[in-house]
Design a protein around this nucleic acid. Structure first.
Lengths: 145, 145
DNA sequence: CTAATAAAAGATAAAAAACTCTTTTATTAT
DNA sequence: ATAATAAAAGAGTTTTTTATCTTTTATTAG
């Protein structure tokens, strides 16, 4: 809806990892791909990138896998979104103009700014780990079937 | 930001046409492309489609061009957006799940529904022609330079 | 009725996003 | 040490989106 497909997968994967690794457990790529119903090599690439950026942790070798430490679990949705999709969602113009500001606005500038700000506040104030419990309880879903 | 590039061009073009054709005048593709700073053959294709859908009007031959009649000028941003980008923005899931509803929600379902609804209300209550005056007065812009 | 004009239609090309495959590197349990 | 495991890295491929080019059809002014 608002994000690239890559970003949607990233968010679902990070939710999955945070949930599974809540008590120190690590999860492999295969389990993640199955858990969020995504193409395995594609989500692998995405996680590689998130790992490099420090948004998730990883360990190689047997018993290895992806996980989140206490700190990164406190990251917000906005951290993931801007890492993957950049800041176009937070700063871009609704009509695609490069220059668009209160000074030199596009016609819909003010209308969009309101909604964009609310979206931004929401994404910046929602943490990754805050869905762990409802996921554990089966109250919400991160895969199709 | 929220729309495809095609849709951004479409909105800008429709604003331009509505403004110029406010008093019955028609505008050619060349003038439109220059007026909104877009690739000429690309916006031509987009307008062809909008015309077929009845969201703008067109006339062939000399003195021809694109225009909007009183009725279509009353169309909303939502009409253009859903014609070009479909309804993913209005009905899609934030995490890209095909099935996602209050019954079987993704983790961010409720948070996103709020923002989506506001965006939807805004788009459905904003008409094409309501920017004519500010565009005439040079108070807002639909091109880069 | 003809020439000029302008949109419509159709076919193609380039760029970006989504997705896949293969090889390498690090780690660990035995 | 070695074999097994799992992520990292690098090099593709496919699909979708964005953009372009060429030909056809309709309309109008002279």
């Amino acid at each position: 809806m608002f994000f690239s497909k890559t970003c949607e997968y990233a968010l679902r994967a990070v939710f999955f990892i945070a949930q599974k690794s809540e008590h120190g457990r690590k999860v492999g790529i295969r389990e993640i791909a199955a858990g969020i119903d995504s193409p395995e090599p594609f989500i692998a690439k995405i996680l590689q990138d998130l790992s490099k950026r420090g948004l998730i942790q990883s360990a190689k070798g047997p018993t290895g896998g992806f996980y989140t430490d206490a700190e990164t679990r406190n990251n917000t949705l906005a951290d993931i979104v801007s890492a993957v999709d950049g800041n176009r969602l937070f700063t871009g113009c609704g009509l695609g103009l490069k220059e668009c500001s209160a000074n030199k606005p596009c016609p819909v500038h003010n209308e969009f700014a309101k909604i964009r700000d609310q979206l931004s506040i929401m994404l910046h104030s929602t943490t990754i780990m805050q869905f762990n419990e409802e996921l554990n309880l089966g109250l919400s879903y991160i895969k199709e079937r």
